[in-house]
């Protein structure tokens, strides 16, 4: 039973990783908290659903979701963040601006879906259950975990092994210096936002399939979990976000199974507070410059 719960948690954690890594990527590159990330995630779920509903195969729906979520994310950067990069108050501005984008995107999907919950047709993914060592694994779970692993690996290869990845990391370290050596920051940001959005879109499809409950509010809890994950993993750290997502998925599944229902959220966020108390930049976050705040 415990092992089964851990396995389920691992699957959920893999999907969280897709969501959180993209969220954290943007923070790492621009120091912006993109509150529209949940809306991008939801867009992925809706696009896949409407593709399948229109008779398209799931694979096509998945690809359409990933691409459109990626493009939407790029659009968010251009509309909401580009002007702010040059202003002094960008950190605060980005939160409000992306909050605005989130509201707009949610309204659009609310209209399209007419405030209804939509569900994939029953056999979009055939119900097949594998059993081994006393564990039950559904085909859907296998797809989820494989997709999560493959996508994260592609992204890691992209960031750590290609020249684009080097540019992203150069801009992350120092935008001005990167520009001096010929990196075009706007292009780099576009690519970063595309990857981030595509990851969120993929997560949206997988969550849509897993819980089969697609609605215009579905992004909000994931955004909150995204917060918790990056606090656990450290803002801006991609390996941190990965590890934290897996831990988080398992802790959440276990706490749903073993804690009084309704307390899960309180438990998770209280844990987050404790972590922040001990380590103000998150468990695996980089230490920032010393403080001159003094005592009370």
């Amino acid at each position: 039973m415990l092992l089964q719960q851990l396995l389920n948690g691992l699957v959920v954690g893999g999907v969280y990783a897709l969501f959180a890594v993209g969220f954290n990527l943007i923070f790492g590159v621009q120091r912006f908290l993109n509150l529209a990330h949940g809306a991008v995630f939801m867009t992925g779920a809706f696009v896949a659903y409407y593709t399948v509903e229109a008779g398209g195969p799931l694979v096509l729906g998945f690809l359409a979701a990933v691409v459109s979520a990626g493009l939407l994310s790029v659009l968010i950067e251009i509309v909401c963040f580009r002007r702010l990069r040059k202003s002094g108050d960008a950190e605060f501005g980005a939160i409000l601006s992306s909050m605005g984008a989130s509201l707009v995107i949610m309204t659009v999907w609310q209209w399209i879906s007419q405030t209804q919950v939509v569900r994939f047709p029953f056999d979009t993914v055939p119900v097949v259950i594998f059993r081994f060592w006393g564990l039950r694994v559904s085909l859907l779970q296998v797809i989820m975990i494989v997709a999560a692993v493959v996508i994260v690996m592609i992204m890691a290869w992209f960031i750590y092994r290609t020249s684009f990845g080097r540019q992203v990391r150069a801009v992350t370290d120092n935008e001005k210096a990167a520009m001096l050596v010929g990196v075009n920051p706007n292009r780099t940001y576009n690519m970063t936002y595309f990857i981030s959005g595509a990851l969120a879109g993929a997560a949206g499809v997988l969550v849509g399939l897993a819980f089969n409950n697609i609605n215009y509010m579905m992004g909000e809890p994931y955004l909150l979990f995204g917060f918790a994950i990056i606090i656990l993993g450290g803002l801006g750290s991609i390996p941190g976000a990965l590890l934290a997502s897996l831990i988080f998925g398992m802790v959440q599944t276990l706490s749903i199974a073993y804690l009084p229902s309704g307390l899960t959220t309180a438990f998770i966020f209280s844990a987050m507070f404790l972590i922040l108390l001990v380590k103000p930049t998150g468990l695996m976050g980089r230490e920032e410059a010393g403080s001159l705040r003094g005592r009370r």
Binding site: I95, L224, F227, I230, T264, T265, F269, F273, P280
Partner: peptide, 19 residues
């Protein structure tokens, strides 16, 4: 905490109160 971390922590607080 500073900046963004304060924002996140306070949003978490709202969630705790809510639940």
């Amino acid at each position: 905490l500073r900046g963004v971390y304060q924002a996140i922590a306070t949003v978490a607080f709202i969630q705790i109160v809510l639940s």
